[in-house]
Design a protein around this nucleic acid. Structure first.
Lengths: 161, 161
DNA sequence: ACTAGATTGTTCAAGCTTGAACAGGAAGAG
DNA sequence: CTCTTCCTGTTCAAGCTTGAACAATCTAGT
């Protein structure tokens, strides 16, 4: 039988509700821009953009999954579709055939280069522009805090009581 | 042909990447706790919790959709499933038969009461606890800024150039 | 009163995500 | 050397979301 839980104060609740609204709506807003202009989801863009910055435009799938914190299952499905569109190629890693390496094709590179300006403009429009430098710093601190809590908790179970 | 776009500075990019990681992972972390303990998604919880705070535990579907900023299509599907589970009832609004009103049942109320402490604990754990009051205030300001940008832009098209 | 348009909500097909089951290879213990 | 275990990645079924099409109702203009 749990003690009386520590409810949120009014300020805490306001901040949480605002964040929840952001979580529900920002992904679809960014998806909408990328889909409309480049037929990419935000998730697709992160995968391609990650590859475009890697040496040799190549990364192991498990490294990609770690970088953007997603399930291997989801990544595998997305990468399969991106390969079917000719934006990247999959091949077993020569050093260690257990790994699969994804390499951006020229078409994939061109698409990232084409899509980047519009995507950055959307991120600026929705998130960055209009914030003061100290708000941007606070945003970074808060978001890092949350992601750290999540990754630390994944082992110990979400709610340790 | 666009001008050279305004890329993000290092600080801005760090803040944006941290927020993106939060967006990708916080919803599933909160879903996981609610699904494990109460067989509810976060979205389900917001719907039920919204009804539980409304006068008569009743709201019009379109008001619910506005409150949590989601498509009517998604809400309609979720509400149908919640009704099948006996957590709420749908009925045409007596005042205006064009509206559909959803009313929380006793079972739905009991479930919200049961689920709330664990959910609040998870929100505290992942988000609120460990932040200073000024960080919480900054979070609220930033999140409100973003949601405002999104709702203002939905009319004029995401990327006005 | 009548028509045109807007609002509200449902439904359907298509696509996506999730979690579980599975296969293959690598590393380590005995 | 062999067995077990872990890691990596794929696949499949089930469930969810999306957007478009549709029906029903209200509102406003004429």
């Amino acid at each position: 039988m749990p003690d009386e839980p520590r409810w949120l104060t009014d300020h805490e609740r306001d901040a949480w509700l605002a964040l929840a609204k952001l979580m529900f709506n920002l992904p679809s807003a960014l998806d909408a821009q990328l889909l409309r202009d480049n037929h990419l989801t935000l998730f697709d863009y992160f995968v391609l953009s990650g590859l475009s910055m890697a040496p040799g435009r190549t990364m192991r799938l498990s490294d990609v999954a770690n970088q953007i914190s997603c399930s291997l299952s989801r990544l595998s499905n997305v990468v399969k579709r991106l390969e079917q569109r000719g934006l990247l190629r999959r091949a077993p890693d020569p050093d260690n055939p257990r790994y699969t390496a994804a390499t951006l094709t020229d078409a994939g590179w061109d698409l990232v280069v084409t899509a980047a300006p519009g995507h950055v403009a959307a991120v600026r429009h929705y998130v960055i522009d209009g914030l003061t430098p100290s708000q941007i710093e606070a945003l970074r601190e808060v978001a890092c805090h949350v992601t750290q809590q999540i990754s630390q908790t994944s082992e110990a179970g979400p709610r340790p009581r």
